[in-house]
Structures are given as structure tokens and as C-alpha cells.
Design a binder for these strands. Structure first.
Lengths: 219, 219
DNA sequence: TGATCGCAAATGGTATACCGTTTGACGATC
DNA sequence: GATCGTCAAACGGTATACCATTTGCGATCA
């Protein structure tokens, strides 16, 4: 079942690499993204790089500047609030649907992912923990079984990952995810939705604290 | 202030043209979209066509088939339901924010658009009416002043326009839009959200009827 | 000293050419 | 007559080349 003929166009590969670099902070907001340079750096021609940049623009990770170099997006506080507000509306629906449409198999998978997250949190490995956290959300989205919600989730997810990519309380994150899983397991859509919004509020506050710190340290 | 140096890359122009063709039904679901043919047809090279197709894929109007021609997307009934459900969540937030953030100037603009729509409806001009309807929703989205909501709205909007592009009761649409405007004017976010969901339900039912008719006429 | 103008380099936009895979029809085989 | 193999054409993926605009710095002048 893993055959899948995984043919990955260069454009997708380039997008994936650059996306990861942005989320991991390797490329900071405001950094130039020059097509020729990226092409040389990644050993491909400009065409796939162009397409990759278009994708990242669509994801909102890159700001295009017609006829000139694009830059890694700089988020304002308003952008952050906006992201959280929209994401709340989306997550509410996602978790409600997930709670309604869960299956025993999926619950097992979700538990496994959270185990991985908890382990990473105990090991003080933020990168691994966040990756597992992202996987959790992705799996929940899959459980909601709404293709459109998936799409929209993907767009907002990379921004959210970028936003929360640094620290914040890992154990708290794990606890909240466990709570969400509980509500899904119980099939309680209402409770799942409530916890989801609460979870985002926690994330927003953490992001605000982080940004305040960063702003302070820059002066 | 209108100088704006409107430079429109060919890719955007191509995307706009093909999008309109799909929405207007000129290109039917399942139709092949061959890069070389489109390039020849529109008098450009394949590169901008490629980029345009990528955009339309991102909008969900086109289904890509790696290494082969793309096709105009075929929507299933499940896709339609999914679209309406997600759109409900989004519109709820959009209209709530719009009601909170409206300005007198914006209200005037909204009234003007609805006048245009009502006039088109009276003149039995579905195309113009739907375009005005789309403008109304776009303007409301602008009023919500949420960039992210705008983005997501744009993705779902073209699908919705395609879905509702044919007929359905024009006068009913105008009436519902008027009701929404009233709630926005009153600054009643809750009521606006409620009407928005109701409005979508009407649209969904109309779309279902339409699809049922079409399915019936095909056999 | 500081602002302005101009020009070369940088950079994105597009066209063209080539390559490998997929398609689909034709013909051989059972 | 149906099925399968084969092969040329179709098609998307990528590289390269060229053009128009933007950038940014250095020369020039107030």
C-alpha cells in the first residue's frame, strides 16, 4: 500500500524545502527570496522555483513584489489576531465534524501521535513536539473528512506553525491536545469545538508573549 | 489615486479569462485543459498558462493530473454540501465582523451594489444579477477587514459562483441580501450571522434542485 | 554636505527548446 | 471477436535564453 508511485515535481520539493526553512526560522521575515539564487542553491532552474514561490505566496508565507524579489512575510500583530480569529471559526467546525465522524482506528492513530508528542515534550525537544502537534491537527482534519476544510486548514496551518514554531509551554500543549482527543473520543462535538477555541486562545496568548519579548529584545 | 500602475502579469490575465470561462459554463466539468492549446488560443507561451492553471487548481476550479492534462473540476454532491458547510462557518464570521466594522461610506456602497442587483433582477438578467451578488459579498468581505478571511473567501467564492452561476430565484436573492444589509447597518452581528447561514441554506437548496434537474435531463 | 540624476547590474516575466512519461489507437495474437 | 503488446503522438516538466523594469550606487551639482 505504500507503493504510491511517489513522483514529486521539483516545484513541490522546492516549496517544501523553502517552507520548512521559513517555519524553522532559517529564513527570517523580510529576507529576500531571489529566484536565481534559490535556483542555484537548490540545483534546479528558475521555473520550478517560480512555481514554488507562487505556492508559498498562496500559503501566505511569502509576500510577492511584482517585478522584484519576493520576501519572507512579516506578520503584524493584527495579522496574528486575524489568523487566530479565522482559525477559531475553522477549528470549531473541524473538531465538531471530527467528533461526529471519528472511527476506532482513527482514535488509535490519534493516541499514537499524542504519545509521540508527549514523549518529545518530556525530552524537551520543541521541534519534534511541534511537528507531532502539527500531525495531530492534520489527523484531526483528516477525521473531519471535509476536503475543503483540509485545503483551508493547510493554508492557515503553515502560518500557524510558523507563528507557534518557537516555544510556548510544551506540556500545556500536550494537555490541551489530550483534552481535545477526549472530546473527540466521546463524540462530543460541542465540547470539542469549545476546547478548540480555548486551545487557540492559549496559542494566541503564547504567540503574543513571544512577539512582545522579541520586540523588546530588538531595542 | 487611481494611478496604481496596473501591471497585470500575463499569468493573472490568463487565470482570469479561464476562470470566467469555467464559471460561465463555457468550459464544462471534465473538459481538458491542455497547456499548449490554451497558450495558442490566448496568444501567450506555456509558462503563464502553467502558472494560471496552478492558481485555478489552488482555487479548486481545476483538477490537476500529474504529467497529463488537467480538467475542469467535477463537483460531487458531497463536494457541494461540504462547500456550503465550510462557507457557512466562514460567512458567519464575515458578516459578524462586517456588522461590527461597517462605516457609513461602506453602507452607501453596499446599497449601490444592491440597487444594481435589484435592477438586474427586474430586468431578468441573471448574469448581471449574479455578478452584482458576487460584488455584494466581496464588499461585505472587505468590510469585515480580515485579510485572511478575504483570501479564504476568494478561494470558496469562485466555486460558489460556479455552483450558483445558473439560475435560482433572483428576487429571493435580492431580498436576502437586503436583509443582510439591514443587519449590517444595525450593527447586529448575531443577526447578520444568522441570516448569512440561512442565505447559504437557500443557495444550497437551489443548487441541489439545479443539479437534480441537470442529472435528470442527462438520462 | 546633501540631494538628484543617471546608468549598470540585478531581477522577474516571458518565449522557446528539449526530454521523459503518458495516452490511445492500431495491429498481432489467442 | 476480445485482449494484450507496441509505438508514435501528445503532453507536462524542466532548462536556457532574452527582454523590460526596477534597484541601488556613484557621479554630479546645488
Amino acid at each position: 500500500m505504500t507503493s504510491e508511485q511517489s513522483f514529486e515535481p521539483e516545484a513541490d520539493r522546492v516549496a517544501r524545502i523553502v517552507r520548512e526553512q521559513i517555519i524553522e526560522g532559517e529564513r527570517a521575515p523580510g529576507d529576500r527570496l531571489v529566484e536565481r539564487d534559490l535556483a542555484t542553491e537548490l540545483g534546479v532552474s528558475r521555473v520550478p522555483v517560480r512555481e514554488a514561490l507562487r505556492m508559498l505566496v498562496a500559503e501566505g508565507l511569502v509576500t510577492p513584489r511584482p517585478r522584484t524579489w519576493a520576501v519572507v512575510r512579516t506578520f503584524t500583530d493584527a495579522d496574528v489576531d486575524d489568523l487566530i480569529e479565522v482559525r477559531s471559526a475553522i477549528e470549531t467546525l473541524t473538531f465538531r465534524l471530527a467528533a461526529e465522524r471519528r472511527s476506532p482506528e482513527r482514535l488509535t492513530e490519534l493516541e499514537a501521535v499524542l504519545d509521540r508528542e508527549a514523549q518529545a515534550a518530556r525530552a524537551q525537544d520543541p521541534t519534534a513536539a511541534h511537528r507531532a502537534g502539527a500531525d495531530f491537527h492534520e489527523l484531526v482534519a483528516a477525521t473531519a473528512a471535509s476536503p475543503l476544510l483540509d485545503e483551508i486548514g493547510a493554508i492557515t496551518a503553515s502560518r500557524l506553525r510558523w507563528l507557534l514554531g518557537q516555544h510556548l509551554d510544551l506540556q500545556e500543549m500536550v494537555d490541551e491536545h489530550l483534552g481535545l482527543l477526549g472530546a473527540i473520543r466521546a463524540g462530543d462535538g460541542q465540547e470539542a469545538a469549545r476546547l478548540a477555541v480555548e486551545h487557540l486562545r492559549t496559542s494566541r496568548d503564547a504567540a503574543r508573549r513571544l512577539r512582545a519579548e522579541q520586540a523588546a529584545s530588538r531595542h
